[in-house]
């Protein structure tokens, strides 16, 4: 199967407020997809529904042909926009935790990346800065050999130097038939690496296209297209 994620008429509302109003989207395997949109456009909501943390109000979402559940959680590696690590564990403990619960987790890979970023596995999470914690989370998420990576603002909180390494980490760490969906509004930083882009606006899909298409047909960068689509 080539489709890794498929959403049909996906709707999510919180009381009066509608976060997603009828999203139809199909993502293929083997692609690096940028999920772009201004604040409040529904990026996080879409990702959280795919990760199984939110229940859609209507419509459906399928990951590898299955509704979010145990089977999809085995193959989806999700990085939230917040810190989900408790603060009393050591980095080594949390790596053991991931190893325990995810069959596709590769500890060697995690330790190697920690070394590259000069993070001591014996450090407690409590003593770490927010940026370092974010790096640890990203390392954990990218050390899984998953089929779909859902990365919500993976580079928002870290310094530009680490940003490059992290992007490099993301690009070089997923297998050929896996897909990565990165949500961000820092488009210029990631546009070089993307295969496809999905533009969200007010909970709806504004544009789905490959990056090559935009460059060739419209002759412009994603960043400038974004600025035009979302002009205030």
């Amino acid at each position: 199967m080539d489709t890794i994620l498929e959403a049909r008429n996906l709707i999510k509302s919180y009381g009066q407020h509608t976060a997603l109003s009828g999203v139809d989207l199909t993502l293929q395997r083997g692609r690096l997809i940028g999920l772009l949109g201004p604040n409040g456009s529904g990026k996080t909501t879409l990702i959280k529904i795919a990760a199984g943390l939110l229940t859609p109000t209507a419509g459906e979402i399928m990951i590898d042909g299955k509704a979010p559940g145990i089977e999809t959680k085995k193959i989806v590696s999700y990085l939230p926009e917040r810190s989900y690590l408790n603060d009393w564990m050591k980095v080594a403990d949390i790596i053991a935790f991931f190893k325990d619960f995810y069959e596709n987790f590769n500890s060697d890979k995690a330790y190697e990346m920690l070394k590259r970023l000069h993070i001591n596995p014996q450090d407690k999470l409590r003593t770490m800065s927010k940026g370092t914690k974010e790096k640890v989370q990203l390392i954990l998420v990218m050390s899984r050999e998953a089929d779909l990576y859902l990365l919500d603002e993976p580079i928002g909180g870290v310094d530009p130097a680490a940003r490059d390494y992290i992007l490099q980490t993301i690009i070089s760490n997923y297998k050929e038939d896996a897909s990565v969906m990165i949500s961000t509004h820092l488009i210029a930083d990631i546009e070089q690496v993307l295969d496809d882009v999905v533009f969200l606006n007010y909970g709806q899909i504004a544009l789905v296209s490959s990056v090559d298409e935009i460059r060739e047909e419209k002759g412009r960068s994603i960043d400038s297209l974004f600025r035009e689509v979302y002009k205030c």
Binding site: L53, I70, K73, K74, Y78, P80, L85, F101, Y102
Partner: peptide, 13 residues
């Protein structure tokens, strides 16, 4: 709460 983001993305019932 926040830790639920990890607990509920584990492949566990």
């Amino acid at each position: 709460s926040d830790e639920g983001y990890l607990m509920f993305t584990l492949p566990v019932k």
